[in-house]
Write a protein that binds this DNA or RNA. Sequence first.
DNA 1: AGCCAGGCAAGTG
DNA 2: CACTTGCATGGC
Length: 301
Amino acid sequence: MRTGEILLEEIPGPFDLQSTVESGQTYLWRREDGMMFEDSELYGGDAWYYTVLPASYTGEDAEVIKVRQLDEVLEWRSTFDADNALRELLRLEDDLERIERELPGHDVVEQAFDRFRGMRLVKDPVFPCLISFICSAQMRVERIQKMQEEIAESFGSSAEFDGETYYSFPDPLELSEASEDDLRDCGLGYRAPYVESTAKKIASGDHHPLDASSLDYKEARDHMKQFTGVGDKVADCVLLFSLGFLEAVPLDTWIRTSIEEHFPECDAGSYEKTSELIRQELGGDLAGYAQTYVFLHLRTS
DNA sequence: AGCCAGGCAAGTG
DNA sequence: CACTTGCATGGC
């Protein structure tokens, strides 16, 4: 077992672990005591969170990372040296002070920043991110997380840590062995065939979601939409929460409602046009940051 | 009991 | 294109 600390005064701007991993932008982290936002709101505590990286992330084994935030440090324990991985997964290099400064001043955005100061975007491993957002259609956050747990336990590989067994999210090849019925048993409902098709497409080597990284934003979105179960909204989520396209603004039900209330002039009907208008309104290259703050603010108020 | 949840695919006009 | 419909599941 390895352990370590990341000094928070050494990263640019504030950081808040709870709002980052419980914000609904990732379904791949768990609080060790099983509680989440809905139970505790912002409790300001020092709970341990964990995630299990798939083997494809390091190229070797599945790795368990546990992390908690104390006053001025991020303390971690892991099956491997998790320092670099944590900095990447939690986007600790983002200059959050500059980002907040550069975003245009709108009441709802500023309220969200005040309430969840230190929330950062995440950078999830791309395959679990893609599958989890395919599962997210017409589903509540808590249930999406549960579906990912079921998938991991059924098809992922196990890792021992602290005397307990953890399951990583399966790699494409592992998940490609799942039948539609297997996936329905994980509670996916009508999303099961979408996940089956996408896993098999990636496992066959035809298309990989990572290939979108080298494209510009709009091409990247089209690339993602080749996968069954991926439309405009899910494509934007994967680009934003895994591939670092910070200009992506997923238009979900919460954001659409918010646009009607606060930015009616941006409501252009189609996803494409509305997305482009709200992106400009929310700060262009960093609009995804503003989107995620507003989403969290609205979803929990 | 009925409604709804971070939508999407497939089918029309 | 823009618009409609069906879709599994579980919590409230």
